[in-house]
Design a protein around this nucleic acid. Structure first.
Length: 560
RNA sequence: UGCCGGUUGGUGUAGUGGUAGCACGACUGACUCUGGAUCAGUUCGCCAGGGUUCGAAUCCUUGACCGGCAGCCA
């Protein structure tokens, strides 16, 4: 039997572990977000990796909030993260945890470290600690408080917890090696005093463990076997290991988690740091975390991306250690591929140009049959009204067209999709010389599906009957940034795309659009894939977001 | 210039001593009542030098270049 195991270096490590019967053959991962912002597509990569790897290896994956810094964290973020992970299609069952669940335990472990002479309370100020730490090329020097007695440390640490000292008055540090070439091992801070109300523990604590201390121990307590994180934590791995090796679990933890680092996702034409995304939101460059232009999960969801398309994307980009920049075209390909197979076709004219078919009887309406999806016959057919007055797309007519323009021109013919072939007889203009209307004729023998419909015309266009048209608003989106890599600019905000959103009013959709089956995702014929905006769209005033355009060969041709 | 990591077509990713593959993109052509989709094809790559070997992307070595690290953030 062929294996569905993903091909990447992490799976290779797991295969070796499995072969060596490490961890009794168990695979247990976790997704450990800090609830200080909304999740983005880069987190989706991590979510798919952690949950996906567990699933593929018959293991489990926990959701654990790394909530050790109450000054930055909020329940709003906790809630949004759970929503997003679930929406992506993953389930942590009853394994929802918080680092704050372990605060008491972590405190006791720290007491143990002190008793073992491996941690001490340090009264150096933050500035002094930085000075003492040395530099990248010079060793640090030991704190004068480094050799306090165990009893004194125990007393001081207890009083830190009791709230006897002001914020920043002292910290608990690990006693490791001030001369280590790895900065993280130069007596790292384990606990700091911080008076901030924690979203879960309230004001119970005024000391909080640092990530480097809380994270490995949380992993161990949850019996995590493979602790997958991003590259910037590689330098922290020796400290991760130190924590696990030096606390005395007395049987609470059974695993010896192994930290494995992979490269985070970078996508062209966007930014991925929480800080920058927050800045875009807070300074009004976008409408919110869920603005359809944002690379956040909530933004992609509102834009119309499906969970499966995002999972597919995360699979295709692979996992490795080399820093890379994935072309956003791949993400777009994933949603196009899915929606091409599933989305119902609809005719909507974005920039309407009215045409009158002079030889079509006034008042007559024909209900013509059209397929809901030519890729999938099972999706059936529907009827759309054809009448004497129609809207076509402005760009489907040119008075003086270039060589390969296959659409309507004066005296030229065009097939109307699922209807008739029309011919442009006359161009009507207003005083300003702008085209306001076209007078056309139609060939009654050319009706789609009819016995004499076989005549070939080079172009086919979408259209909507004027008396039956529904007015809708359409929002077209382009990349949020003009630069492939905004992070390279002095200020990434200067690369913002002023035309990232175009709002079109008075677009003409075929009737009954909202009632169509599979009504939440559509292909507007020849335009792209669209969905109703989950917030702005109302039954009497529909608003559609363009998820992604169709590939457009003509656009490329016409540019040259 | 201390430590850690990395370098395979335009982009991403396989290949772990035996014909460098896949996907996306780009380009050709066919087909098409969506200039969509589909189909066929083309283009394009092992960072560099030295070594080991019958044979090296893979092993050794020297170098170049890129990324990360000096929060009481994660």
């Amino acid at each position: 039997m062929a294996s569905d195991l993903p091909v990447n270096f992490i799976q290779n490590i797991i295969n070796q572990d499995l072969e060596a019967d490490k961890n009794d053959g168990k695979v247990h991962t976790r997704f450990p977000p800090e609830p200080n912002g909304y999740l983005h597509i880069g987190h989706a990569k991590s979510i798919c990796l952690n949950f996906g790897t567990a699933l593929a290896n018959n293991g489990l994956c926990n959701l654990r909030f790394d909530d050790t810094n109450p000054s930055k964290e909020e329940v709003e973020y906790v809630d949004s993260i759970m929503t997003d992970v679930k929406w992506l299609g993953f389930d942590w069952d009853d394994r929802l945890f918080y680092a704050s669940d372990y605060f008491e335990q972590l405190y006791q472990y720290a007491v143990g470290l002190i008793k073992a002479g491996k941690a001490y309370v340090c009264n150096l100020t933050a500035d002094q600690i930085r000075d003492y730490r040395g530099t990248l090329t010079e060793p640090g020097k030991e704190s004068p408080y480094r050799n306090r007695s165990v009893d004194e440390n125990l007393d001081l640490f207890e009083r830190m917890r009791a709230g006897e000292f002001e914020d920043g008055y002292c910290v608990l540090r690990a006693k490791i090696d001030m001369k280590s070439p790895n900065m993280n091992m130069r007596d790292p801070v384990l606990y700091r005093i911080l008076r901030a109300t924690h979203h879960r523990t309230g004001d119970k604590w005024c000391i909080y463990p640092m990530y480097d201390y809380a994270h490995p121990l949380s992993d161990a307590l949850e019996n995590i076997t493979h602790s997958i994180c991003t590259l910037e934590f590689s330098d922290h791995r020796p400290l991760y290991d130190w924590c696990i090796e030096n606390v005395d679990y007395s049987g609470e933890a059974q695993s010896r988690p192994q930290q494995i680092e992979f490269a985070r996702l970078n996508l062209t034409y966007t930014v991925m740091s929480k800080r920058k995304l927050r800045e875009l939101v807070e300074n009004g460059y976008v409408d919110g975390w869920d603005d359809p232009r944002m690379p956040t999960i909530s933004g992609l969801r509102r834009r119309g991306y499906t969970p499966s398309s995002i999972r597919d994307f995360c699979e295709r980009i692979g996992v490795a250690k080399r820093n890379s920049m994935v072309d956003i075209a791949l993400l777009e390909h994933c949603i196009r591929e899915e929606l091409n197979a599933n989305a119902i076709r609809v005719m909507t004219v974005l920039r309407p140009l009215k045409i009158v078919i002079e030889n079509y009887p006034e008042g007559q309406v024909e209900w013509l049959e059209t397929e809901n999806n030519p890729e999938n016959e099972a999706m059936g057919k529907r009827k759309i009204p054809f009448s004497r007055e129609l809207y076509i797309e402005q760009e489907d007519f040119m008075e003086n067209p270039p060589k390969k323009f296959f659409r309507l021109r004066p005296g030229g013919e065009l097939r109307l999709k699922s209807a008739y072939i029309i011919k442009c007889e006359q161009v009507i203009k207003n005083d300003a010389g702008e085209i306001t209307e076209l007078i056309c004729s139609y060939d009654p023998d050319s009706k789609s599906g009819g016995p004499t419909s076989g005549r070939k015309v080079k172009g086919t266009a979408h259209w909507v009957s004027v008396p039956h048209a529904v007015d809708v608003e359409v929002r077209l989106y382009d990349n949020l940034f003009l630069s492939e890599n905004p992070d390279e600019e002095d200020d990434y905000k200067t690369a913002l795309n002023p035309a990232s959103r175009e709002i079109l009013q008075g677009c003409k959709a075929e009737p009954g659009i909202a009632e169509l089956p599979q009504g939440n995702k559509y292909q507007f014929l020849r335009q792209g894939y669209f969905c109703q905006d989950s917030i702005l769209s109302k039954p009497d005033k529909m608003v559609f977001n363009r998820i992604v355009s169709l590939r457009d060969t003509w656009a490329k041709v016409s540019k040259n």
